[in-house]
Design a protein around this nucleic acid. Sequence first.
DNA 1: CGCATATACTTCAGGCGTCAACCATTTTTC
DNA 2: GAAAAATGGTTGACGCCTGAAGTATATGCG
Lengths: 167, 167
Amino acid sequence: MPTSAADAAPNAAPVDLETRADDASHEALRLWLRLLTCTNLVEADIRGRLRESFGCTLPRFDLMAQLERHPEGLKMGELSRRMMVTGGNVTGITDQLQQEGLVSREPLANDRRAYLIRLTPAGRAAFTRMARAHEQWVEQLFEGLAETERRALFKLLGRLKSTLVSA
Amino acid sequence: MPTSAADAAPNAAPVDLETRADDASHEALRLWLRLLTCTNLVEADIRGRLRESFGCTLPRFDLMAQLERHPEGLKMGELSRRMMVTGGNVTGITDQLQQEGLVSREPLANDRRAYLIRLTPAGRAAFTRMARAHEQWVEQLFEGLAETERRALFKLLGRLKSTLVSA
DNA sequence: CGCATATACTTCAGGCGTCAACCATTTTTC
DNA sequence: GAAAAATGGTTGACGCCTGAAGTATATGCG
Protein backbone atom coordinates (compact mmCIF):
# COMPACT_ATOMS: atom_id res chain seq x y z
CA MET A 1 0.00 0.00 0.00
CA PRO A 2 2.08 2.89 -1.23
CA THR A 3 1.80 6.26 0.33
CA SER A 4 3.38 9.57 -0.33
CA ALA A 5 6.44 11.06 1.23
CA ALA A 6 5.26 14.60 1.06
CA ASP A 7 2.81 15.83 3.59
CA ALA A 8 5.36 18.04 5.28
CA ALA A 9 4.50 21.28 6.95
CA PRO A 10 3.63 24.18 4.66
CA ASN A 11 6.48 26.48 3.77
CA ALA A 12 6.65 29.98 2.37
CA ALA A 13 8.43 29.16 -0.89
CA PRO A 14 6.57 29.42 -4.21
CA VAL A 15 4.40 26.34 -3.94
CA ASP A 16 2.03 26.94 -6.77
CA LEU A 17 3.04 24.48 -9.41
CA GLU A 18 4.66 22.12 -7.04
CA THR A 19 1.63 22.03 -4.83
CA ARG A 20 -0.54 21.33 -7.77
CA ALA A 21 1.76 18.60 -8.91
CA ASP A 22 1.78 17.15 -5.45
CA ASP A 23 -1.94 17.26 -5.25
CA ALA A 24 -2.30 15.53 -8.56
CA SER A 25 0.12 12.87 -7.44
CA HIS A 26 -1.65 12.41 -4.19
CA GLU A 27 -4.90 12.08 -5.96
CA ALA A 28 -3.58 9.48 -8.36
CA LEU A 29 -1.89 7.71 -5.50
CA ARG A 30 -5.08 7.51 -3.51
CA LEU A 31 -6.96 6.28 -6.52
CA TRP A 32 -4.40 3.59 -7.08
CA LEU A 33 -4.46 2.63 -3.44
CA ARG A 34 -8.19 2.30 -3.45
CA LEU A 35 -8.17 0.26 -6.62
CA LEU A 36 -5.69 -2.09 -5.07
CA THR A 37 -7.67 -2.39 -1.87
CA CYS A 38 -10.86 -3.28 -3.68
CA THR A 39 -9.11 -5.91 -5.75
CA ASN A 40 -7.45 -7.39 -2.69
CA LEU A 41 -10.72 -7.59 -0.81
CA VAL A 42 -12.51 -9.37 -3.61
CA GLU A 43 -9.60 -11.63 -4.36
CA ALA A 44 -9.13 -12.66 -0.74
CA ASP A 45 -12.79 -13.49 -0.41
CA ILE A 46 -12.91 -15.61 -3.51
CA ARG A 47 -9.66 -17.38 -2.79
CA GLY A 48 -10.85 -18.28 0.68
CA ARG A 49 -14.16 -19.63 -0.51
CA LEU A 50 -12.53 -21.58 -3.31
CA ARG A 51 -10.22 -23.17 -0.81
CA GLU A 52 -12.89 -23.93 1.77
CA SER A 53 -15.51 -25.19 -0.61
CA PHE A 54 -13.38 -26.98 -3.16
CA GLY A 55 -9.84 -27.19 -1.89
CA CYS A 56 -8.79 -25.34 -5.00
CA THR A 57 -6.59 -22.32 -5.49
CA LEU A 58 -7.42 -19.28 -7.55
CA PRO A 59 -4.64 -19.77 -10.11
CA ARG A 60 -5.70 -23.34 -10.75
CA PHE A 61 -9.26 -22.18 -11.14
CA ASP A 62 -8.26 -19.41 -13.50
CA LEU A 63 -6.24 -21.73 -15.66
CA MET A 64 -9.14 -24.14 -15.93
CA ALA A 65 -11.45 -21.25 -16.69
CA GLN A 66 -9.33 -20.29 -19.67
CA LEU A 67 -9.43 -23.83 -20.95
CA GLU A 68 -13.15 -24.10 -20.41
CA ARG A 69 -13.82 -21.21 -22.71
CA HIS A 70 -11.40 -22.56 -25.29
CA PRO A 71 -12.38 -26.19 -25.76
CA GLU A 72 -10.12 -26.42 -28.80
CA GLY A 73 -7.19 -26.19 -26.41
CA LEU A 74 -4.57 -23.58 -25.69
CA LYS A 75 -0.81 -23.57 -25.96
CA MET A 76 1.26 -22.74 -22.92
CA GLY A 77 2.13 -19.36 -24.31
CA GLU A 78 -1.49 -18.52 -24.90
CA LEU A 79 -2.37 -19.51 -21.37
CA SER A 80 0.47 -17.41 -20.09
CA ARG A 81 -0.64 -14.37 -22.02
CA ARG A 82 -4.28 -14.70 -21.09
CA MET A 83 -3.54 -15.22 -17.43
CA MET A 84 -1.04 -12.37 -17.41
CA VAL A 85 1.62 -14.47 -15.74
CA THR A 86 4.99 -15.74 -16.89
CA GLY A 87 5.51 -18.94 -18.80
CA GLY A 88 7.40 -20.62 -16.03
CA ASN A 89 4.49 -20.09 -13.74
CA VAL A 90 2.05 -21.72 -16.13
CA THR A 91 4.35 -24.70 -16.45
CA GLY A 92 4.13 -25.38 -12.74
CA ILE A 93 0.38 -25.05 -12.42
CA THR A 94 -0.20 -27.12 -15.53
CA ASP A 95 2.09 -29.84 -14.22
CA GLN A 96 0.01 -30.18 -11.12
CA LEU A 97 -3.34 -30.13 -12.86
CA GLN A 98 -2.06 -32.75 -15.25
CA GLN A 99 -0.86 -34.88 -12.33
CA GLU A 100 -4.33 -34.65 -10.90
CA GLY A 101 -5.79 -35.68 -14.23
CA LEU A 102 -7.67 -32.44 -14.79
CA VAL A 103 -5.88 -31.25 -17.90
CA SER A 104 -4.02 -32.95 -20.72
CA ARG A 105 -0.98 -32.00 -22.77
CA GLU A 106 -1.37 -33.12 -26.38
CA PRO A 107 1.39 -32.89 -28.93
CA LEU A 108 0.88 -30.50 -31.78
CA ALA A 109 1.24 -31.76 -35.33
CA ASN A 110 2.80 -28.70 -36.94
CA ASP A 111 5.08 -27.67 -34.14
CA ARG A 112 6.94 -30.16 -32.05
CA ARG A 113 7.90 -27.53 -29.48
CA ALA A 114 4.36 -26.74 -28.39
CA TYR A 115 1.60 -28.61 -26.62
CA LEU A 116 -2.11 -28.15 -26.67
CA ILE A 117 -3.54 -28.01 -23.18
CA ARG A 118 -7.10 -29.15 -22.71
CA LEU A 119 -9.48 -29.91 -19.90
CA THR A 120 -10.03 -33.60 -19.44
CA PRO A 121 -13.63 -34.71 -18.85
CA ALA A 122 -12.82 -34.92 -15.15
CA GLY A 123 -11.36 -31.44 -15.31
CA ARG A 124 -14.39 -30.07 -17.06
CA ALA A 125 -16.69 -31.64 -14.50
CA ALA A 126 -14.69 -30.29 -11.59
CA PHE A 127 -14.54 -26.85 -13.11
CA THR A 128 -18.24 -26.72 -13.85
CA ARG A 129 -19.09 -27.41 -10.25
CA MET A 130 -16.75 -24.67 -9.07
CA ALA A 131 -17.77 -22.15 -11.69
CA ARG A 132 -21.38 -22.24 -10.58
CA ALA A 133 -20.45 -21.32 -7.04
CA HIS A 134 -17.86 -18.84 -8.22
CA GLU A 135 -20.36 -16.91 -10.26
CA GLN A 136 -22.64 -16.56 -7.30
CA TRP A 137 -19.86 -15.39 -5.03
CA VAL A 138 -18.81 -12.70 -7.45
CA GLU A 139 -22.36 -11.58 -7.99
CA GLN A 140 -22.86 -11.32 -4.25
CA LEU A 141 -19.69 -9.35 -3.79
CA PHE A 142 -20.81 -6.71 -6.25
CA GLU A 143 -24.49 -6.63 -5.50
CA GLY A 144 -24.00 -3.85 -2.97
CA LEU A 145 -23.53 -1.60 -5.99
CA ALA A 146 -26.54 -0.46 -7.94
CA GLU A 147 -26.88 -1.51 -11.53
CA THR A 148 -26.00 1.96 -12.73
CA GLU A 149 -22.95 2.08 -10.50
CA ARG A 150 -21.71 -1.25 -11.77
CA ARG A 151 -22.18 -0.10 -15.32
CA ALA A 152 -20.37 3.16 -14.70
CA LEU A 153 -17.54 1.40 -12.92
CA PHE A 154 -17.22 -1.10 -15.72
CA LYS A 155 -17.01 1.67 -18.23
CA LEU A 156 -14.44 3.69 -16.31
CA LEU A 157 -12.27 0.65 -15.78
CA GLY A 158 -12.51 0.01 -19.48
CA ARG A 159 -11.20 3.49 -20.12
CA LEU A 160 -8.41 2.99 -17.63
CA LYS A 161 -7.48 -0.36 -19.11
CA SER A 162 -7.28 1.04 -22.60
CA THR A 163 -5.04 3.89 -21.52
CA LEU A 164 -2.84 1.49 -19.59
CA VAL A 165 -2.22 -0.93 -22.41
CA SER A 166 -1.58 1.79 -24.95
CA ALA A 167 0.76 3.74 -22.70
CA MET B 1 -8.99 -14.78 -14.79
CA PRO B 2 -12.31 -16.39 -14.03
CA THR B 3 -14.78 -16.96 -16.73
CA SER B 4 -18.20 -18.44 -16.86
CA ALA B 5 -19.24 -21.95 -17.62
CA ALA B 6 -22.38 -21.03 -19.43
CA ASP B 7 -22.21 -19.83 -22.96
CA ALA B 8 -23.64 -23.03 -24.31
CA ALA B 9 -25.90 -23.14 -27.32
CA PRO B 10 -29.38 -21.73 -26.78
CA ASN B 11 -32.01 -24.25 -25.82
CA ALA B 12 -35.77 -24.19 -25.89
CA ALA B 13 -36.35 -24.59 -22.15
CA PRO B 14 -37.72 -21.72 -20.08
CA VAL B 15 -34.70 -19.47 -19.87
CA ASP B 16 -36.26 -16.35 -18.48
CA LEU B 17 -35.13 -16.22 -14.89
CA GLU B 18 -32.09 -18.28 -15.41
CA THR B 19 -31.00 -16.17 -18.30
CA ARG B 20 -31.43 -13.06 -16.27
CA ALA B 21 -29.54 -14.58 -13.40
CA ASP B 22 -26.81 -15.65 -15.76
CA ASP B 23 -26.66 -12.22 -17.27
CA ALA B 24 -26.34 -10.60 -13.89
CA SER B 25 -23.59 -13.03 -12.97
CA HIS B 26 -21.83 -12.51 -16.24
CA GLU B 27 -21.97 -8.83 -15.77
CA ALA B 28 -20.51 -8.98 -12.27
CA LEU B 29 -17.93 -11.46 -13.48
CA ARG B 30 -16.82 -9.20 -16.26
CA LEU B 31 -16.65 -6.28 -13.91
CA TRP B 32 -14.50 -8.27 -11.53
CA LEU B 33 -12.29 -9.45 -14.34
CA ARG B 34 -11.74 -5.95 -15.56
CA LEU B 35 -10.99 -4.68 -12.08
CA LEU B 36 -8.41 -7.39 -11.68
CA THR B 37 -6.84 -6.68 -15.03
CA CYS B 38 -6.45 -2.99 -14.30
CA THR B 39 -4.87 -3.69 -10.95
CA ASN B 40 -2.52 -6.23 -12.44
CA LEU B 41 -1.42 -3.86 -15.17
CA VAL B 42 -0.64 -1.06 -12.77
CA GLU B 43 0.99 -3.34 -10.27
CA ALA B 44 3.20 -5.01 -12.82
CA ASP B 45 4.35 -1.68 -14.15
CA ILE B 46 5.22 -0.30 -10.75
CA ARG B 47 6.89 -3.45 -9.56
CA GLY B 48 9.06 -3.54 -12.65
CA ARG B 49 10.13 0.07 -12.34
CA LEU B 50 10.81 -0.29 -8.64
CA ARG B 51 13.01 -3.24 -9.37
CA GLU B 52 14.86 -1.64 -12.27
CA SER B 53 15.35 1.75 -10.72
CA PHE B 54 15.96 0.83 -7.11
CA GLY B 55 16.36 -2.93 -6.85
CA CYS B 56 13.44 -2.90 -4.46
CA THR B 57 10.30 -4.99 -4.35
CA LEU B 58 6.80 -3.68 -3.99
CA PRO B 59 6.13 -5.30 -0.59
CA ARG B 60 9.30 -3.83 0.86
CA PHE B 61 8.33 -0.45 -0.51
CA ASP B 62 4.83 -0.74 0.87
CA LEU B 63 6.06 -1.66 4.30
CA MET B 64 8.39 1.29 4.36
CA ALA B 65 5.59 3.52 3.13
CA GLN B 66 3.48 2.55 6.09
CA LEU B 67 6.30 3.35 8.45
CA GLU B 68 7.00 6.64 6.74
CA ARG B 69 3.54 7.89 7.42
CA HIS B 70 3.68 6.67 10.99
CA PRO B 71 6.95 8.00 12.37
CA GLU B 72 5.92 7.00 15.87
CA GLY B 73 6.38 3.41 14.79
CA LEU B 74 4.04 0.52 14.17
CA LYS B 75 3.69 -2.89 15.76
CA MET B 76 3.89 -5.96 13.58
CA GLY B 77 0.19 -6.54 13.89
CA GLU B 78 -0.59 -3.02 12.79
CA LEU B 79 1.67 -3.38 9.79
CA SER B 80 0.02 -6.65 8.96
CA ARG B 81 -3.46 -5.16 9.11
CA ARG B 82 -2.58 -2.07 7.13
CA MET B 83 -0.82 -4.02 4.44
CA MET B 84 -3.60 -6.58 4.29
CA VAL B 85 -1.22 -9.49 4.57
CA THR B 86 -0.65 -12.13 7.21
CA GLY B 87 1.60 -11.69 10.19
CA GLY B 88 4.01 -14.34 9.07
CA ASN B 89 4.54 -12.45 5.89
CA VAL B 90 5.35 -9.21 7.67
CA THR B 91 7.86 -11.04 9.84
CA GLY B 92 9.83 -12.10 6.80
CA ILE B 93 9.87 -8.75 5.08
CA THR B 94 10.73 -6.94 8.29
CA ASP B 95 13.57 -9.35 8.97
CA GLN B 96 15.16 -8.49 5.67
CA LEU B 97 14.69 -4.75 5.96
CA GLN B 98 16.18 -4.91 9.43
CA GLN B 99 19.11 -6.92 8.11
CA GLU B 100 19.67 -4.20 5.55
CA GLY B 101 19.51 -1.58 8.26
CA LEU B 102 16.44 0.14 6.89
CA VAL B 103 14.08 -0.50 9.78
CA SER B 104 14.52 -1.11 13.49
CA ARG B 105 12.68 -3.24 15.99
CA GLU B 106 12.44 -1.51 19.35
CA PRO B 107 11.13 -3.21 22.46
CA LEU B 108 7.90 -1.90 23.88
CA ALA B 109 7.78 -0.91 27.55
CA ASN B 110 4.25 -2.05 28.36
CA ASP B 111 4.20 -5.21 26.34
CA ARG B 112 7.13 -7.50 26.06
CA ARG B 113 5.49 -9.48 23.25
CA ALA B 114 5.40 -6.62 20.80
CA TYR B 115 7.95 -4.51 18.99
CA LEU B 116 7.77 -1.08 17.56
CA ILE B 117 8.99 -1.02 13.98
CA ARG B 118 10.47 2.20 12.73
CA LEU B 119 12.34 3.48 9.73
CA THR B 120 15.98 4.09 10.46
CA PRO B 121 17.47 7.30 9.06
CA ALA B 122 18.95 5.24 6.26
CA GLY B 123 15.56 3.68 5.65
CA ARG B 124 13.86 7.03 5.57
CA ALA B 125 16.41 8.34 3.10
CA ALA B 126 16.08 5.34 0.85
CA PHE B 127 12.32 5.50 0.96
CA THR B 128 12.17 9.21 0.20
CA ARG B 129 14.18 8.72 -2.94
CA MET B 130 11.91 5.95 -4.10
CA ALA B 131 8.69 7.66 -3.14
CA ARG B 132 9.42 10.61 -5.35
CA ALA B 133 9.77 8.41 -8.39
CA HIS B 134 6.87 6.24 -7.35
CA GLU B 135 4.51 9.18 -7.20
CA GLN B 136 5.41 10.20 -10.69
CA TRP B 137 4.96 6.71 -12.05
CA VAL B 138 1.51 6.43 -10.56
CA GLU B 139 0.51 9.82 -11.79
CA GLN B 140 1.66 8.93 -15.27
CA LEU B 141 -0.23 5.67 -15.23
CA PHE B 142 -3.49 7.43 -14.47
CA GLU B 143 -3.05 10.56 -16.47
CA GLY B 144 -4.75 9.02 -19.48
CA LEU B 145 -7.95 9.52 -17.52
CA ALA B 146 -9.51 12.94 -17.32
CA GLU B 147 -9.79 14.63 -13.99
CA THR B 148 -13.53 14.00 -13.89
CA GLU B 149 -13.04 10.35 -14.75
CA ARG B 150 -10.50 9.88 -12.00
CA ARG B 151 -12.81 11.51 -9.54
CA ALA B 152 -15.74 9.39 -10.59
CA LEU B 153 -13.68 6.23 -10.47
CA PHE B 154 -12.38 7.12 -7.05
CA LYS B 155 -15.89 7.63 -5.80
CA LEU B 156 -17.24 4.41 -7.25
CA LEU B 157 -14.37 2.42 -5.84
CA GLY B 158 -15.10 4.01 -2.50
CA ARG B 159 -18.66 2.79 -2.74
CA LEU B 160 -17.49 -0.69 -3.69
CA LYS B 161 -14.98 -0.77 -0.88
CA SER B 162 -17.55 0.19 1.70
CA THR B 163 -19.97 -2.48 0.54
CA LEU B 164 -17.21 -5.04 0.54
CA VAL B 165 -16.01 -4.43 4.06
CA SER B 166 -19.51 -4.28 5.50
CA ALA B 167 -20.69 -7.38 3.70
C1' DC C 1 -3.42 -16.07 43.45
C1' DG C 2 -3.78 -19.44 39.52
C1' DC C 3 -5.78 -21.11 35.64
C1' DA C 4 -7.93 -20.10 31.18
C1' DT C 5 -8.11 -17.39 27.39
C1' DA C 6 -6.61 -14.00 24.37
C1' DT C 7 -3.00 -11.44 22.04
C1' DA C 8 1.65 -10.56 19.59
C1' DC C 9 4.70 -12.60 17.07
C1' DT C 10 7.39 -16.47 14.77
C1' DT C 11 8.06 -20.69 12.29
C1' DC C 12 7.20 -24.02 8.76
C1' DA C 13 5.41 -26.23 4.68
C1' DG C 14 3.67 -25.36 0.46
C1' DG C 15 1.81 -22.77 -3.50
C1' DC C 16 2.27 -18.66 -6.53
C1' DG C 17 5.03 -15.54 -9.29
C1' DT C 18 9.20 -13.36 -11.34
C1' DC C 19 13.45 -13.28 -13.81
C1' DA C 20 17.27 -15.21 -16.09
C1' DA C 21 19.28 -18.94 -18.21
C1' DC C 22 18.59 -22.86 -20.90
C1' DC C 23 17.09 -26.58 -24.50
C1' DA C 24 14.59 -27.80 -28.54
C1' DT C 25 12.45 -26.69 -32.54
C1' DT C 26 11.02 -23.53 -36.20
C1' DT C 27 11.84 -19.69 -39.31
C1' DT C 28 14.75 -16.36 -41.55
C1' DT C 29 18.44 -14.94 -44.09
C1' DC C 30 22.08 -15.15 -47.07
C1' DG D 1 21.09 -25.58 -47.31
C1' DA D 2 23.63 -23.89 -43.21
C1' DA D 3 24.26 -20.26 -39.84
C1' DA D 4 21.59 -16.95 -37.30
C1' DA D 5 17.66 -15.42 -35.14
C1' DA D 6 13.23 -16.13 -33.27
C1' DT D 7 9.83 -18.87 -30.82
C1' DG D 8 7.78 -22.34 -27.38
C1' DG D 9 8.58 -24.30 -23.34
C1' DT D 10 11.12 -25.70 -18.98
C1' DT D 11 14.20 -25.12 -15.08
C1' DG D 12 16.15 -23.09 -10.88
C1' DA D 13 16.92 -19.58 -7.52
C1' DC D 14 14.56 -16.50 -4.96
C1' DG D 15 10.89 -13.67 -2.89
C1' DC D 16 5.98 -13.13 -1.57
C1' DC D 17 2.02 -14.98 0.71
C1' DT D 18 -1.05 -18.10 3.16
C1' DG D 19 -2.74 -21.15 6.75
C1' DA D 20 -1.73 -23.82 10.68
C1' DA D 21 0.84 -24.72 14.58
C1' DG D 22 3.86 -23.09 18.13
C1' DT D 23 6.02 -19.80 21.83
C1' DA D 24 5.79 -16.12 24.94
C1' DT D 25 3.51 -12.63 27.29
C1' DA D 26 -0.81 -10.29 28.98
C1' DT D 27 -5.33 -10.29 30.77
C1' DG D 28 -9.61 -11.87 32.89
C1' DC D 29 -12.03 -14.44 36.17
C1' DG D 30 -13.01 -17.76 39.72
